[in-house]
């Protein structure tokens, strides 16, 4: 059913996806929180690789910077600031977990079925542009300048708000 040519792109894709799936599975199955975050960083890096495969170098760099760098470190800080005592052995909720697993599997089944049955148009893949970064920059400052500015405001507000929330109880 996987009638895909075994070429260089696919080999690379396969490696990256293996890294990501392993990282994701480890993330949900490991016991220690710090290990989870580190495996998650692996997923983020794998995803960055996939972005490169998809000719999106700028997004890949941003992914590495923001996710693998900033967000992971933020989460580690979050863990350090909240997890003084090691979490006690949690009471198990087998019904809840089973149901969640079944629901996730069902959702995946549906999505997979949809992906397999959809007839994707046989369009030509986009040719990689000369300079991905400058093209995106042009696009951002022409067509998407208003959303871009709005986003920067949102980001500023969010960070100031985050500092305010986190600081309030400290005093």
């Amino acid at each position: 059913m996987f009638n895909i040519d075994f070429n260089g792109e696919f080999a690379t894709f396969f490696i990256f996806s293996a890294i990501m799936i392993i990282g994701a599975v480890l993330m949900v199955s490991l016991q220690k929180v710090v290990h989870m975050v580190i495996s998650m960083a692996g997923v983020f890096l794998g995803l960055a690789g996939m972005f490169v495969l998809l000719d999106a170098e700028f997004v890949a760099f941003v992914q590495v910077l923001i996710y693998a760098g900033a967000v992971s470190i933020l989460m580690i800080f979050g863990i350090m600031m909240t997890n003084h005592q090691a979490a006690k052995a949690d009471p198990v909720k087998p019904l809840h977990e089973t149901l969640a697993a079944v629901a996730a599997l069902c959702l995946f089944g549906m999505l997979f079925y949809a992906i397999r049955t959809t007839d994707f148009p046989d369009a030509q893949p986009m040719k990689a542009v000369e300079d991905n970064t400058s093209s995106i920059g042009e696009l951002l400052y022409t067509g998407y300048v208003v959303p871009f500015e709005l986003l920067s405001v949102l980001l500023t507000v969010a960070f100031i708000g985050a500092i305010a929330i986190a600081k309030k109880g400290a005093d």
Binding site: H96, L99, A100, A103, A104, C106, L107, M110
Partner: peptide, 20 residues
């Protein structure tokens, strides 16, 4: 919240199943 989330997901699945 997680129970609510699970319920919402199951409901979503049911709706998808019903429509699709």
């Amino acid at each position: 919240a997680q129970v609510y989330g699970l319920t919402a997901v199951i409901g979503l699945l049911v709706i998808i199943a019903a429509i699709v």
